Amino acid sequence: MFHFRGPSHIGDRLVLKAIVNNSFKHSMEVGVCAEAYKGGEPLRHINSAFMTFEVLDSDRKPCMLPRIRPEPVDGKRRYLEAVARKKIRLDRKYIISCKQTEVPLSVPWDPSNQMYLSYNNVSALKLMDARNNWVLTFEKNKVRLYTLEENHMLCFKVEMHVSVPAEQTFHLLSDLSRRKEWDRHYEECEVINQADEDDTLYRVVTPSVTKGGKGQDFILLASRRKPCDARDPYLIALRSVTLPTHPPTEDSTRGEVLSAGFTIWEESSTVTKITYYNQATPGILPYISTDIAGLSSSFSSTFSACSHFLEANKDSLAALPHSAQ
Rank of each mutant, 00 (worst) to 15 (best):
S97L: 12
K126N: 06
E149F: 11
D183P: 02
F218C: 10
L136P: 02
G213W: 08
H185L: 14
L172F: 03
V158F: 03
Q168I: 15
N151L: 07
V162H: 00
Y79V: 00
T206A: 11
K87A: 08
L201W: 06
G212N: 07
M160R: 00
E188W: 03
G213E: 07
H161S: 12
S97V: 05
V164T: 15
L125T: 02
V205P: 07
L148I: 12
V107A: 12
V162I: 10
M115V: 14
V103T: 15
Y116D: 13
R85D: 07
D199G: 00
T206K: 01
H161F: 13
Y94K: 02
L90C: 06
G213Q: 10
F218M: 09
V83C: 06
L201C: 03
P207N: 08
E81D: 12
V164E: 04
V73E: 11
P104S: 13
D183C: 04
V158L: 08
H171A: 02
C155E: 14
Q216P: 01
S177V: 08
K211M: 14
N141R: 03
V103G: 06
H161K: 14
M128T: 02
C98F: 03
Y116N: 12
K87F: 03
K126E: 11
T147V: 12
N120A: 07
E159P: 00
S174V: 01
L154F: 06
V135D: 15
L154I: 15
S177A: 09
L201P: 01
E102Q: 15
S163N: 14
R178N: 12
T137C: 11
S177L: 01
P165Y: 03
S97F: 12
T169F: 02
Y116P: 00
E150K: 14
L173H: 01
D183K: 04
N133M: 12
N113F: 03
Q114C: 10
Y119E: 14
I96Q: 04
L80E: 11
L145Q: 07
L80I: 03
P104H: 10
P207C: 09
P165G: 08
R85Q: 13
R184D: 10
K142H: 06
L90Y: 01
V107I: 13
K214M: 11
N113I: 09
L136E: 09
R203M: 14
V205N: 04
Y79R: 01
P104L: 10
P207Q: 10
L172N: 05
E102T: 11
K99A: 14
G215Q: 10
N133V: 09
I95A: 07
M128F: 06
D198M: 06
W182D: 05
T101K: 13
Q114A: 13
I95P: 00
V205C: 09
L173P: 00
Q168G: 02
L154T: 04
L201K: 04
C155P: 09
I192L: 15
V103K: 15
V191W: 08
I95G: 00
L125W: 03
I192N: 02
L117S: 07
N132L: 12
I96M: 01
T206S: 13
T206P: 00
T137A: 13
L176K: 06
I88D: 15
L148Q: 15
R131I: 13
